[in-house]
């Protein structure tokens, strides 16, 4: 597909399905583009090995969020899933945040639709809402504090012991 067609099909496909010259050395080309554009690649540990090897920083959700908050790059290419790139954008409004495939979702984030969560929250007005970072920006906006698997205990400890907590969206992490 040529670039004009690929751009037109972007919404439907979720990524730029453009023809790539098979003789291009992708590792070399990506390194060059990063320098030219002052771009940084943040990759999650669950990315394929090649992507981890070309990344400037590899981490889990907490490390990546912190890295996104303090980078000087003009462009952040986020090699991970949608909610992670969203988090980078939330923390960095003036930077361009790119995600290679918009269809890279998350079964956890998908398990909490905004309108259902809104009614759940409304039914428990006394509860502090702690949401796992694996959720959409809309769910974050409805939450009091965000946590990751690396800091969940500390975050929960920061709330007074007698305060009721509503935890979303992962029941296993919450139970643990």
């Amino acid at each position: 597909m040529n670039i004009a067609d690929a751009k037109a099909a972007l919404t439907q496909k979720g990524f730029l399905d453009v023809d790539t010259d098979p003789s291009v050395d992708l590792f070399h080309a990506i390194t060059q583009l990063k320098q030219e554009k002052n771009a940084i690649i943040l990759a999650h540990y669950y990315q394929e090995p090649d992507i981890q090897d070309i990344a400037d920083y590899i981490g889990d959700s907490l490390g990546l969020a912190q890295q996104a908050a303090k980078t000087d790059a003009d462009i952040i290419l986020f090699a991970g899933v949608h909610f992670m790139a969203e988090t980078a954008k939330i923390l960095n409004p003036t930077k361009k945040v790119l995600l290679p495939d918009l269809k890279a979702g998350c079964s956890l984030a998908d398990s909490a639709p905004t309108h259902l969560f809104q009614s759940f929250k409304a039914a428990h007005p006394q509860h502090v809402v702690i949401s796992y970072i694996n959720c959409t920006a809309e769910i974050k906006a409805l939450s009091d504090i965000i946590c990751t698997s690396g800091n969940a205990e500390k975050i929960i400890d920061s709330v007074p012991a007698d305060t009721p907590i509503l935890f979303a969206p992962d029941k296993n992490l919450g139970a643990y």
């Binding site: 080309a29 462009i75 899933v81 290679p100 079964s107």
Partner: peptide
């Protein structure tokens, strides 16, 4: 399956054409 949708080729094209980009309403952000 979501994490593995990203490939090196997609990373290259994304950086080259600066698309797809994440955008968001400022009030939501």
């Amino acid at each position: 399956p979501y994490m593995k949708l990203n490939t090196l080729e997609k990373v290259y094209n994304t950086l080259l054409y600066e698309l797809p980009e994440i955008t968001m309403e400022e009030s939501l952000r």
